[in-house]
Structure formats: structure tokens, C-alpha cells
């Protein structure tokens, strides 16, 4: 029993630091993904065909590739083309640009949900394309896209576990270290599962709060 306590006292902080790393990587990756996704959706909605194709291509490539392959290419292949990044940076950038494709699709469906007549009315009121997005489309589509967006962020949190493979000291990596050094298996992984669940629950609660705020 004493040994058990010792173990947790020794490895508990390691897991908590992993949790913190996972949390902030996911936060930055989500922000990056949301901003990039919104840009992609806006550019994808223009009348300029080559830009639309480029966005389409980006989304197809990202959706058609496992995140791990993207991370390998960035982390191991990056230095070959002058992209030298720390593992955590690769994690943020990789997860961010990967999820951007999914966020872009969510935004696109949101944009499309606004009736055409409302856009025409805005045109006749003299609003520019950007003003229409900002004042007519976004406020209305937020209600609609918040649930799928929250869902996508939750998926991102859980997918961040693969960052352990490219040596990022996040929750899964640190838990595995715990396991490897102590041969305790079930308990550390159960603890990790619980911590992931807490993180996911926090995202879900944040989502519920946003949902209440964007309703009109």
C-alpha cells in the first residue's frame, strides 16, 4: 500500500503536467483551426474559381490523410525542407491545420444555412461581402454550428493522444512513461482516461455556455 502511494506521489505530477500540456496544445490548436477554418470557408465561398478549387483541394487532402501521417511529415520531413520545429509546435500546427479542414466544412454548412433572400436584402442595404458575413451570416449560424464545432474540438482533444508518438510530453506520453517504468498498467491508463474525460467535459460545458450566449 505504501508502495502504491509512493508510485502516485512520484508519477502523479508527471501525469498532471501531461494533462496541462495536452490542455494548452489543444487550446492553441483549436484557436488556430477555427481561425484557419473560418478563412478557408470564406475563401471557399468567393466567386473566384481558382481560390475555391484551392480550398477544396486543401480540405480533400487533410480529410483524406490520417493525422499521424501529417505529423510524421511535419516532424521528420519538415527539417528536410527547412521547417525545423519543436515537437509541441508540430503538435499545435499539425492538429490546428488538420482540424481546420473539418471546421471549414462546418462553417460552410453554416454559411449555406442562411436564406439567400437575407443576403440579397443585405446587398440592397449596401453591405459589403465582409459586412454581410460579420453582421448577417455569422450571428445566425453560430447557433447552428456551435454543437458540431464543440464536437470537433472534443475529437481534437482525444486525437491529441497521437502526439505521444512524435515525443510530445503530453498526457498519453507521460502515462506511458509511468507504465513503462512501473509495470502498473491498468491504474495509470484508467487515470489518464479519467483526465481526458475531465478535459472533454470542460469543453462540453464551455460549449453549452457559448450555445446559451449565441441564441437570439
Amino acid at each position: 500500500m505504501e508502495r502504491f502511494l509512493d508510485l502516485w506521489l512520484q508519477y502523479g505530477p508527471l501525469m498532471l503536467s501531461g494533462l496541462v500540456t495536452t490542455a494548452w496544445i489543444c487550446t492553441f490548436a483549436s484557436i488556430l483551426g477555427l481561425v484557419a477554418g473560418l478563412l478557408l470557408a470564406c475563401v471557399g465561398g468567393t466567386t473566384i474559381a481558382p481560390l475555391r478549387w484551392a480550398v477544396r483541394g486543401y480540405i480533400e487532402i487533410m480529410r483524406g490523410m490520417p493525422i499521424l501521417i501529417l505529423l510524421f511529415m511535419l516532424y521528420y520531413g519538415g527539417p528536410g525542407i527547412g521547417l525545423r520545429m519543436e515537437a509541441t509546435t508540430v503538435g499545435v500546427v499539425g492538429l490546428g491545420f488538420y482540424s481546420a479542414a473539418y471546421f471549414a466544412e462546418i462553417f460552410r454548412s453554416g454559411f449555406q444555412s442562411i436564406p439567400k433572400g437575407q443576403i440579397e436584402a443585405a446587398r440592397m442595404a449596401g453591405l459589403s461581402g465582409l459586412q454581410i458575413i460579420r453582421h448577417v451570416k455569422l450571428p445566425q449560424m453560430l447557433v447552428l454550428i456551435t454543437p458540431p464545432t464543440v464536437n470537433q474540438i472534443i475529437i481534437l482533444v482525444k486525437e491529441s493522444a497521437v502526439l505521444s508518438i512524435i515525443t510530445v510530453a503530453e498526457l498519453t506520453k507521460n502515462t506511458t512513461e509511468f507504465v513503462n517504468e512501473t509495470y502498473a498498467v491498468i491504474e495509470p491508463y484508467l487515470a489518464a482516461a479519467l483526465l481526458y474525460w475531465l478535459l472533454v467535459e470542460a469543453v462540453a460545458q464551455l460549449g453549452k455556455y457559448v450555445e446559451r450566449r449565441v441564441r437570439f
Binding site: 436564406p115 433572400g117 437575407q118 440579397e120 436584402a121 443585405a122 440592397m124 448577417v136 450571428p139 445566425q140 437570439f216
Partner: peptide, 13 residues
């Protein structure tokens, strides 16, 4: 030029 639409097209939010 102002315009009034068949389905009003007000902004509901």
C-alpha cells in the same frame, strides 16, 4: 435603389 421582397427577408437575429 431600395427593394422590398416577397418574403420580407428581414434579418431574424
Amino acid at each position: 435603389v431600395g427593394m422590398v421582397f416577397q418574403h420580407f427577408n428581414l434579418w431574424p437575429h
